[in-house]
């Protein structure tokens, strides 16, 4: 296609310039030196077409195509890098989200564990407390029973002792059995003895 264009252009150029050439040459002849500026040299035009055509081909093949292909390769490289970076960024965002999720999960689990521990501790504390309280009250109950029992025993003992004392005193009284004054003196002496012995015991 290009070659055809170029051939056509060359032919057209020659056809188009030929009348101009005639005109320019006439002009030149009539005017002298000044017209030389507008001279058309068909040979030069042909050279121009040939050189220009060759340049289009040579530069197209060895300059513009390599330059533009290098630029496009670079553009593609940059685009690839950008795409890759975008992909990696998305991947990183996904990983971060997952990581965050895992963190939240872990935190929740830790919280759960602590809570469970607390609950278990609380329960244990309450159980121990309960047990201590029941044991304590049982012990107190036992102590109270013991005290009551001891008190009863002591009361019995005291009662028995006082009966014995009363009996002893009575028997002594009865054995003497003299007169009222003597009796009174006797009891008083007995009470004095008792007080003395009690005081002596106390002292």
């Amino acid at each position: 296609m290009r070659t055809v264009n170029r051939t056509v252009s060359a032919v057209l150029a020659l056809v188009a310039t030929s009348p101009m050439l005639l005109w320019a040459q006439d002009d030149h002849a009539a005017e002298g030196g000044g017209g030389a500026l507008f001279n058309i040299n068909l040979g030069l035009s042909t050279w121009t077409l040939l050189v220009f055509g060759a340049l289009i081909y040579v530069l197209g093949k060895y300059a513009w195509a390599p330059i533009l292909s290098a630029v496009e390769a670079r553009e593609k490289g940059i685009q690839d890098d950008l795409d890759q970076a975008k992909g990696q960024r998305e991947e990183a965002a996904g990983l971060l989200a997952e990581h965050k999720k895992q963190m939240a999960e872990a935190r929740r689990e830790a919280h759960q564990i602590v809570q469970d521990g607390k609950d278990a501790g609380e329960k244990l504390r309450r159980e121990i407390e309960e047990k201590a309280r029941t044991e304590g009250s049982a012990m107190i109950e036992r102590a109270r029973e013991e005290i009551e029992r001891e008190r009863d025993a002591a009361l019995d003992a005291l009662r028995k002792e006082s009966v014995d004392l009363a009996l002893a005193a009575a028997s002594k009284l009865i054995r003497e059995n003299l007169d009222a004054d003597k009796n009174r003196e006797l009891v008083m002496g007995y009470v004095d003895d008792l007080t003395k012995s009690g005081g002596g015991a106390q002292a």
């Binding site: 340049l55 040579v58 530069l59 060895y62 300059a63 292909s69 390769a73 490289g77």
Partner: peptide, 25 residues
């Protein structure tokens, strides 16, 4: 004109080669 063409081929030929060899990436 031929000098101009030669200069163009020389300069841009070299630019094209350099671009292909060094500046693709």
């Amino acid at each position: 004109m031929l000098i101009a063409a030669a200069l163009l081929v020389l300069v841009f030929g070299m630019v094209g080669r350099v671009m292909q060899r060094k500046y693709r990436d």
